[in-house]
Amino acid sequence: MQEQIQQLEERASQRLHEVASLADLEEVRRALLGKKGELTALLRGMGGVAAGERPRMGQLVNDAKLRIEAMLEARGAELTRIARDAALAAEIIDVTLPARAVPFGRRHPLTQTSDDIVRIFSGLGYEVVEGPEVETLYYNFDALNIGPDHPARDEKDSLFISDNLVMRTETSAVQIHVMESRQPPVKIIAPGRVYRRDAVDRTHSAIFHQVEGLLVDQGVTFGDLKGTLTAFLQQLFEAIPGGSSLRTRFRPHYFPFTEPSAEFDISCIFCGGTGCSTCKGTGWIELGGCGMVHPGVLENVRYDSETYTGFAFGFGIERMAMIKFGIDNIRLFYDNDIRFSQQF
């Protein structure tokens, strides 16, 4: 009997070693420990054992059963691990394949730049106003001191709709609407689309965006105009190396609605002012026009041009964005190629 138990244990160990799957293992368990299993058969054979021997033999069979169960469990754990490893091996992915494109929206570089400009002037206390793009000749020209025979009123320079209506050629007309509706102090900026009868090339677009600024109050000086634009430009270009310390230059110019008038430049932020292809070797980049509001313009809106003075300025948003992002072709803004848009 004792020998039989020993042989059973040895066979069990041998069979468990050979078992390759959890299903086979279950079969082996049943063959050993099941109702018709070998160990059960051994226990049934206890009847032939001498009565005095029975407790000892029973003990031996039980011990063997525990050991076999432990072996089954160990082998089961081992097979489970092997099976999981195999399943995981089947799930290997190539981690170097491209990522799934998670849709990530972006703002257009022009509206981003417009926002920057608006944010800076909001901080300086300016109010943001808007006006119509289809403007009457009075607001677009006459009220801005642009008389009936000024070249800007020529059919070849501006886009007309009728004898009375024109696509606004600058956002300055918004100034007049605002000044007509209230008394000074007036402190506004007006961003928006403007239209010129220009052929489109790398730096010109028939439709583009402008920001117009206006401050009318007592005691406003030309020095204040210089200071305001300098502070603004240093903030707008602060992210560009040297941007926060850029220099400004004001050159006399002629505009019908300002006097004194100026064009304003910044020291070239690409070469630091030593001369490069962007600034055409001059060290300066031209940005826009400005000046003290012409007393005639103030009088057109019935302001007392003795009590109040003011300044106005205007510049193109495209131009600012081109400098800020290093874009060399204005058409890219309107092509809306996603490969361009996703860069900002």
């Binding site: 402190k187 300098t230 230059r249 004001f250």
Partner: peptide
Amino acid sequence: YDHIPTTLPRGVNIGAG
């Protein structure tokens, strides 16, 4: 124009922004 001092205007604007 270079010799005109660079200054900032005074005043607050409640409607700013």
